[in-house]
């Protein structure tokens, strides 16, 4: 019995040593250790041994089984490593083939700029307000201190719908609508579509503006400067120079045009900024008391500022677009770049 076990042990170890694959190692396991394997078969002979010998031989059987198990296991793991190494050696793909891409879409650049500007102002405490595009003359002009027959109306070529309705020429009527609904303090912005009868490379009969309005107990022109400086720095970069210079809008006083240092040439002067080093990006000013009168605010106890900017202008500067018409041609080769 002992000899038979020794022979079996020897044969098993040899079989393991000569096995060349994971499969043949599995065969070895079945042949020697399986339920119908040789070791099991041998163990059936244990019963014929004497009572003294039985535990000793039994012990031996266990030792041999453990040994075969452990040698087999390490051979198997070596074979697995070997197989993995071979697989890694043989497999490769052409990684330069294009990936399987889900097609993504794009928001229109105008939408992207509106969202970006709105987000910046949301951070400054401004909420979004809206108003109709087909607007009353009263909201679009009169309440904003453009008297009938005033030359200031020439600044804005108006599309008319009838005697009292028109396509709003700016987003400023939203100021009026908001102030008629709410009392100060107010901080709103109003993005929207506006219209003027004008069409060339820098003018489109339809375009977009964002209006801003802040009214409170003691808002000053210097606060306007502060808000607009933060805004332009966030939109165009931290150190963008900002310049306010006097201008005129019927609904603000004092009024200002706001220029930023040319983003193309950095202020040295180029074709885009007409050699001035400055780019006009928005109009602003302190709300004119006449406007407060139209919305029944007490001009002596409050103050506020308003500003408005052209979205197309900002989009064109941000993305280096020279012809405004590109924005409304909706050529997907253009749109997919955003």
């Amino acid at each position: 019995m002992r000899e038979q076990l020794e022979v079996l042990r020897h044969e098993a170890l040899q079989a393991i040593a000569s096995a060349s694959s994971q499969d043949s190692l599995q065969d070895v396991r079945i042949r020697f250790l399986g339920r119908k394997g040789e070791l099991t078969a041998l163990m059936k002979g244990l019963g014929s041994l004497s009572v003294e010998e039985r535990p000793v031989v039994g012990q031996l059987v266990n030792t041999i089984r453990d040994e075969i198990e452990s040698v087999l296991e390490s051979a198997l793991s070596a074979a697995r490593e070997q197989a993995k190494a071979e697989r890694l050696q043989s497999e490769h793909i052409d990684v330069t083939l294009p990936g399987r891409r889900a097609q993504f879409g794009t928001k229109h650049p105008i939408t992207q700029v509106i969202e970006e500007v709105s987000d910046i102002f949301a951070g400054l405490g401004f909420s979004v307000a809206e108003g109709p595009e087909i607007e009353h003359d009263w909201y679009n002009f009169e309440a904003l201190n453009f008297p009938p027959e005033h030359p200031a109306r020439d600044m804005q070529d108006t599309f008319f719908v009838d005697n009292s309705l028109l396509l709003r020429t700016h987003t400023s009527p939203v100021q009026i609508r908001t102030m008629l609904k709410k009392k100060p303090p107010l901080r709103i912005i109003a993005p929207g579509t506006v219209y003027r009868c004008d069409s060339d490379a820098t003018h489109s009969p339809m375009f977009h503006q964002i209006e801003g309005l802040m009214v409170d107990k003691s808002v000053s022109f210097s606060d306007l400067k502060g808000i607009l400086t933060i805004f332009t720095n966030q939109l165009f970069g931290q150190k963008t120079g900002v310049r306010l210079r006097p201008s005129f809008f019927p609904f603000t006083e004092p009024s200002a045009e706001v220029d930023i240092a040319c983003v193309i040439c950095g202020g040295k002067g180029c074709r885009v900024c007409k050699q001035s080093g400055w780019l006009e990006i928005l109009g602003a000013g302190m709300v004119d008391p006449e406007v407060y009168r139209h919305v029944n605010y007490d001009a002596d106890n409050i103050s506020g500022f308003a500003f408005g900017m052209g979205i197309e202008r900002i989009a064109m500067l941000k993305y280096g677009i020279s012809d405004m018409r590109l924005l409304f041609e909706n050529d997907v080769r253009f749109l997919r770049q955003f």
Partner: peptide, 10 residues
């Protein structure tokens, strides 16, 4: 995968 367009309102 859709691209947003903006057409004139008129």
């Amino acid at each position: 995968g859709m691209n947003e367009v903006i057409n004139f309102s008129f």
